[in-house]
Each structure stands twice: as C-alpha cells, then as structure tokens.
Design a binder for these strands. Structure first.
Lengths: 196, 196
DNA sequence: CCGCATCCTCATGGATACTG
DNA sequence: CAGTATCCATGAGGATGCGG
C-alpha cells in the first residue's frame, strides 16, 4: 500500500498538513502528474488518504485519514535513520523550508515547558515556527506570533545540530550559524536551560 | 537507498539475522534472482548490508551493518502500522513462522523480568522462541531450551492477540487458541503476572 | 546444491502536451 | 487548478544457463 514509488513521499507531504494537488506536486520534485494522480487515488482507495472538496472556494484538498496519519512513526523513523546522509549533504540535495516541520519534529527530543517558548527558524528565505509548552514540542509551517528566539542558518547546519552531529560551538566558529548563544541554547540544550 | 522495490524487504529478512543468498530469496516470494543480486550489491555499496565470506564452509552470508540494523525502528513502525491489515487477513496472504520473530518483537511491549521466562510459539509447523529476562523481551528463530509455556495457534490469532485486536477469551472461545490460560497470561497480560 | 549472470518480454514510470 | 492522454525509456518478472 505504501511501498509503491512516491507513495510514502506523498504521505510525507501530507504529514505537514492537508494540501492541494499542486502543492503536493511541488513538494515532490520529479514526479509525473499522471503518477501523482494515480498514487493519490490508490492511497484513497486503501484508506490512507482522504479527498476533500472544500465548500466555499473551488478547492480540493488531500488529507491523511487517522490511520494514514499513523504513518508518522514510520516516516520519522526514516528521517532519523537518514540523518547521517543529510549531514553529508550531497551536491544535488534539494531543500524546502517546510520539510523542517517534519524533520525537526522527528529529530528534536519532545520537550515540555510550563512557560511556552516560541522559536522561529529563518531558513531558505522562509520562516517556520517551533513551540514548546506543556503539551510538548510542536513545529508549524508558519510562525504565528512573536519569537523568543530566532535561528538563522543553512539547512544542513540546522539538521546537523538537531542530529547532534555538530555542536553549537563548531557551527558558530565556522560562521555558518547566526543568532545569539542564548537563542541557540534555548533550542538545543537541556530542558533546564529551556525552562530557566 | 531503501526506497527501491524489495530493498526494505531485504532489510526485513536480514533483521532476523544474517542469511545466505538462497535463504533471503525464499523469504521474498516473487523476487527475480537478478534483482535480488542487484539490490544486495546496491545495499552493500551504500553501507546498509555487509557481505561476508565464511571461512570454514563455502558459504556467503549477508548481514546488516550497524547502520543498516538501525532500520529496525522503521520496519517495526511499518509492522505496527499494518496490523489492522494483518488482522483482516486477505486470502492470498503468505506466511512464514520466522516472520513472527520480527513481528512479535515489534508488537509485544518490551517487558523485563528478573526470573527469565521462556515461551515457545508452535505455529505453521515450526517453533519460535520468546525469552523475557532482565535484558527485556527477545524473540529468536529457534527455541533453545525448555519452555515455561507453549502457545499453539494460527498466525492470524497470534497477531491478533499481540495487536490487542482480539482478547484471549475470544480466541479460546472460538477454539482457535490452544494452551493453558496460565501460559497465555504469561505472555499477554501485565508485568505483575509475568513476574509473579 | 549455491550464487549468481544473461536474455527476453512486458508492466511501470517519466516527460511532455493538452483539456475541462 | 486539477488533472488526463500519449509516447517513450526504464526497470521488473520469469526462465534459463553456468561456474564453483
């Protein structure tokens, strides 16, 4: 059901949130439109994906069913497994800021904090939001309000940090990471620091 | 690296333990021999699989590298995700007793017990062993010594039990599960029962 | 036997153009 | 925007061969 080519990548796209056809397409570099249509119908037939026709605008969005959403564990496991490859960074790697929504959630430990903290990642010309509160760690496609800290870095560096393959000190020394030490600590160090 | 057809299934086979070419082949119903050879070489090139030439007999075994073995989390996530399908049991489902080594480990909670207990599953004409001790829950292709309990059931029933989709009472009432109530409790109920 | 390599056929995927 | 239709290239499946 999810072993066909592109299928699990479609799921990955929808794990960020419901999307329209063209948005799924743009997240999947190289997929043929006919194949995407075929995969979406297949995933719909097997109950992984749900096709919704929006009422007000003429829009069709695809979303994961509750069962399909349970593939998050699988995809996150793959994200964690592949971090050594991401850290390597082959020359032809593609990148979209939105992908961090999934990756960071998979890589960062699920911290909680009584006082909610908000961090914005400025990367590849886009902003994504990270929120840590009582409910745990949540990553969102768009930041909703003021940030307590802002991190500005290349994707590779951020992933390297999250994976623990790179230390904050190394990244700062290399000039590849901007943002105050306080900001960095807020995200990447121990819970006591976050909650202080 | 593991998205090609059959690749992750090869990994699944090797997660049980190192295997020879022909054994991997027989675990993968429908794969062409040339494809298997190609995939194994590909997995070897990318550092997921290791090819070992045994010294004493003329044998070649394939094994997962440490990094490749970390795909266990991914495969186990898929096992858990797909239990509703396994419980459904399509008519053309194939089954090999050895597959339970992976499935049970993914499905059963990782219990520990001071006094080691050994359970044998008699299924599809073969025996597999389950051991619970201080180190946790371990499943092995072959039982090594005397069992404290023996479960004799159809694969579907065992999976249903492990997944929690079926209760012990239902299975016994349906006559599809043999073995003493004590034996069943030993495996499927709370830790306190196991350790009593 | 085991561990593949070769050959052939056909299903599947990829690229592009096109349409309601 | 949300796909469909078409055509071509690639990869999968199946049978077979062959050396160790």
């Amino acid at each position: 059901m999810v072993g066909d080519r592109w299928s699990l990548l479609v799921v990955r796209e929808l794990l960020v949130g419901p999307k329209r056809y063209s948005d799924v397409l743009s997240g999947l570099d190289g997929v043929a439109t006919n194949l995407l249509a075929q995969r979406l119908r297949s995933l719909e037939d097997t109950g992984v994906v749900e096709r919704r026709v929006a009422t007000n605008p003429n829009g069709i969005v695809y979303a994961l069913t509750p069962w399909g959403a349970q593939l998050r564990e699988t995809v996150e496991a793959l994200v964690r497994w592949s971090t050594p490859l991401m850290a390597l960074g082959q020359g032809d790697d593609a990148f979209q800021a939105e992908w961090l929504v999934l990756a960071l959630r998979a890589l960062l430990p699920d911290r909680t904090s009584k006082r909610p903290i908000r961090v914005h990642f400025a990367v590849a010309g886009a902003l994504i939001g990270l929120r840590i509160d009582q409910a745990g760690t949540r990553v969102e496609p768009r930041p909703t309000d003021q940030a307590d800290a802002v991190l500005d870095a290349s994707p590779t560096v951020i992933l390297g940090l999250a994976a623990g393959a790179l230390t904050v000190e190394q990244a700062v020394a290399a000039g590849s990471l901007r943002g105050s030490q306080r900001s960095l600590d807020t995200v990447f160090t121990s819970h006591s620091v976050i909650d202080d």
